[in-house]
């Protein structure tokens, strides 16, 4: 219970920081409503620059072990030049090949396998695919 309250406080602070930086939440302007009606129920919310439609930031809470694992194994990818965290390359490939599976996703996975061929951990991809089957496809 205390953890939920601490998380809600952290979210409210982040929401207010986003507003000060020129963003707005599409679902509601009230952080308590956003938290109670959306995030707490594992529903995402979306932020955009005030007065714009795109691009948007989708924000949601981790809902299972796989989401937690994605966050624990997040990586910065120097080739992107972006100071942001991404899912690991192994996580990207596993989700695209095992869960998403559209033609574009399969092409994306093929590209990632080429670009990061020298650092890929195939055992990790196999392990993540097994977790996807257990948690998302069963």
């Amino acid at each position: 219970m205390q953890n939920i309250s601490l998380f809600q406080d952290a979210f409210i602070k982040m929401h207010n920081d986003l507003l000060l930086s020129g963003f707005e939440c599409i679902q509601s302007e009230y952080p308590e409503v956003i938290y109670d009606d959306y995030l707490k129920n594992k529903t995402s919310v979306r932020y955009v620059r005030k007065g714009h439609f795109i691009p948007e930031i989708e924000l949601k809470l981790a809902k299972d072990e796989l989401d937690d694992y994605q966050i624990r194994t997040r990586k910065k990818l120097p080739l992107t030049g972006l100071d942001l965290y991404f899912s690991s390359i192994e996580m990207n490939i596993a989700f695209k090949e095992e869960l998403l599976r559209s033609e574009k996703d399969m092409d994306d996975a093929k590209h990632l396998r080429i670009i990061y061929s020298d650092v890929l951990d195939e055992n990790e991809i196999t392990k993540i695919k097994a977790e996807i089957r257990r948690l998302r496809l069963s």
Binding site: K42, A62, Q70, Y85, M91, L100, R136
Partner: peptide
């Protein structure tokens, strides 16, 4: 603190 982070969802699982 929440991290802005990409989590994957299959099309029909999107909310």
């Amino acid at each position: 603190f929440p991290i802005l982070f990409c989590l994957f969802e299959r099309e029909h699982q999107r909310d």
